[in-house]
């Protein structure tokens, strides 16, 4: 009887250990899948930004051509936009991209200020349509960025908080960078020459 009790005790312990192990394994699987889901959402949000940035890059040559027809002598500003665009097109990585895009935003802003001086251009239907497209694309970039940052915030919080940080450590989930445009280049007031 005694040995039977001992066996039962050992068996009970074994069963207990197995149950705990199964629970831990299930939790690990759940946590890992959760992290993967968050990570994919971040990637998806980034893809959305990318789509909008590309769209802006595609719009700029059109815009420059239209402006050139009316204000061809404003070479420096136009060239600046073209240069900023080509830089943005070739940029890679979140940080570099953000930097290049903010340069481009600045250059476009200056171009739009310049355009104010040309009533003929402002009355041009083609230009008006382009302007709406560009403004909307800027908005979309902004909102895509907002959504991306939301997702990154959720993801980063997840991988930094206990207990998911253990899983994140084991499977090498690293914190993702925010897409920030608020740098000095952006805040600087555009220079205007007379």
């Amino acid at each position: 009887m005694e040995s039977g009790g001992a066996i039962l005790g050992i068996g009970g312990l074994m069963i207990g250990i197995i149950i705990v192990a199964v629970i831990i394994i299930l939790w690990v699987i759940g946590a890992y899948n959760g992290l993967i889901r968050f990570f994919n959402e971040v990637k998806n949000a980034w893809a959305q930004i990318d789509v909008q940035l590309k769209r802006r890059h595609d719009l700029i040559p059109n815009l420059v051509e239209t402006v050139k027809g009316y204000a061809g002598h404003e070479k420096s500003t136009l060239e600046e936009v073209v240069k900023a665009r080509s830089q943005a097109v070739t940029a890679s990585g979140v940080q570099e991209q953000a930097q290049a895009e903010s340069m481009l935003s600045g250059a476009l802003g200056r171009l739009m200020v310049l355009v104010e001086q040309y009533p003929d251009l402002k009355a041009n239907q083609n230009f008006l349509a382009l302007q709406e497209e560009l403004a909307s694309t800027e908005n979309k970039i902004g909102f895509a960025r907002q959504f991306y940052n939301d997702q990154v915030m959720k993801y980063n919080t997840k991988i930094q908080s206990i207990p998911t940080n253990i899983i994140a450590g084991i499977f090498n989930f690293s914190a993702q960078a925010f897409f920030e445009l608020e740098n000095k280049a952006e805040r600087e007031v555009p220079k205007v020459q007379f």
Binding site: L108, M112, D150, M153
Partner: peptide, 24 residues
């Protein structure tokens, strides 16, 4: 917390641009 921190007021780019122009 998120609103108060990084995300607090991400206005759309166009509004920021408009403000820049207004400042100017």
């Amino acid at each position: 917390a998120r609103e108060a921190g990084v995300e607090r007021d991400k206005k759309s780019e166009s509004i920021t641009r408009l403000q820049e122009v207004n400042d100017l």
